[in-house]
């Protein structure tokens, strides 16, 4: 068993492109759920809006890349408005059911064969990411080395001696852009949350009737949180689509949303850094378990009769699901949450 490899892989993924998608999606949810108490179970649809907005405008309409980004963001805004205007005045679980249904509608429409000439049906779309990767400021044959960081033919490698992180030419670019986005969004979020505006959001989470009785237009604040969180979800969708250079409808299932929640709860809701920490830990755990099990199976540490390699995925997700349930029961505040703050349950 090559533990060094397993560990390196897990660390690589813990800050890699996929983790960034989950971090961004969960940051959006954090604004909606963590701070405002909105139960958006359709974050996958907001990501789909971003991903498909970009793909459709670039591939099907032939628009420039940046137009695709703008259209993706607008699509997320429109969806937030469409879902929010009717439901935000109703009880919290209504938004949950409406968003989960809307997300499923979006996915089924995206995979429908009726429009597969345009959307590619269940196969999805590709061919929209080239302009993004053409922006990479270094060449494919760039080679340099600085301390423990080196670039070899465009690939980034970080060597910590015991373990080594490696990223492909494209992944490196996705990560640079993705982490920049995370940093910018977190800074803006921190300013927003620690302002009177953020205080109103938290008030709404605690008791919206009370906030309403104090002369705040609760509906408008909820809508602002839903739209902003949805836009961040769309950004997650961009990173997701670009990092894989394709969009596929079945990536945007309700499970996608649920894992955003797992990530958020793992890291701690209503904490600025919660989602990032949660996403990193989630992907670290996923990879260390999955890679570890696969290694163990191929090295015959675990006999194939007990578990074969196709069962590793379900098993790991089972364990992560179990982890989430236990976490919610025994440590609902997440990794960096404040226990005291959660002691008074408001609902």
């Amino acid at each position: 068993m090559d533990w060094q490899f397993v560990f390196s892989q897990a660390l690589t993924q813990a800050i890699g492109p996929t983790m960034l998608v989950y971090a961004l999606g969960a940051i959006g949810l954090n604004l909606q759920f963590g701070y405002t108490g909105l139960l958006n179970f359709g974050q996958a649809a907001f990501a789909a809006m971003g991903a498909y907005g970009l793909a459709l405008s670039v591939v099907a309409m032939g628009l420039p890349f940046w137009w695709g980004i703008v259209i993706g963001l607008l699509a997320a805004c429109v969806m937030a408005l469409l879902l929010g205007i009717p439901t935000l005045r109703l009880r919290a679980d209504y938004l949950a059911i409406v968003t989960i249904a809307a997300a499923e509608i979006v996915r089924r429409i995206a995979r429908a064969t009726v429009w597969s000439d345009t959307t590619g049906g269940s196969d999805g779309m590709r061919g929209f990411s080239e302009p993004f990767f053409e922006m990479i400021p270094w060449d494919r044959d760039t080679t340099w080395s600085f301390l423990f960081v080196s670039m070899d033919n465009g690939r980034l490698a970080v060597d910590f001696g015991i373990f080594e992180l490696q990223y492909s030419y494209r992944d490196t670019w996705v990560m640079i852009v993705g982490w920049t986005l995370v940093a910018v969004i977190l800074v803006v979020m921190a300013f927003l949350i620690h302002s009177p505006w953020g205080r109103v959001l938290k008030g709404i989470r605690e008791d919206e009737e009370a906030v309403r009785s104090l002369g705040k237009n609760v509906f408008a604040y909820k809508m602002q949180a839903l739209v902003l969180g949805g836009i961040i979800g769309a950004i997650a969708g961009f990173v997701f689509a670009l990092s894989r250079a394709n969009v596929q409808p079945d990536a945007f299932t309700t499970d996608f949303t649920f894992y955003f929640y797992v990530v958020l709860i793992l890291g701690g809701a209503a904490r600025i850094f919660g989602p990032v920490l949660g996403a990193a830990l989630f992907w670290f755990l996923y990879n260390i378990l999955a890679q570890g099990l696969i290694q163990a199976i191929s090295a015959d540490v675990i006999p194939p009769s007990v578990i074969d390699s196709t069962q590793v995925g379900p098993l790991v997700f089972f364990l992560l699901g179990l982890g989430m349930v236990l976490l919610l029961i025994f440590r609902p505040q997440g990794l960096i949450g404040n226990r005291k703050e959660l002691m008074f349950d408001v609902r």
């Binding site: 205080r199 938290k202 008030g203 989470r205 605690e206 008791d207 009737e209 009370a210 906030v211 009785s213 703050e341 959660l342 008074f344 408001v346």
Partner: peptide, 8 residues
């Protein structure tokens, strides 16, 4: 029923 915002 008082509506204090508990976690603030």
């Amino acid at each position: 029923l008082t509506k204090a915002l508990s976690r603030m």
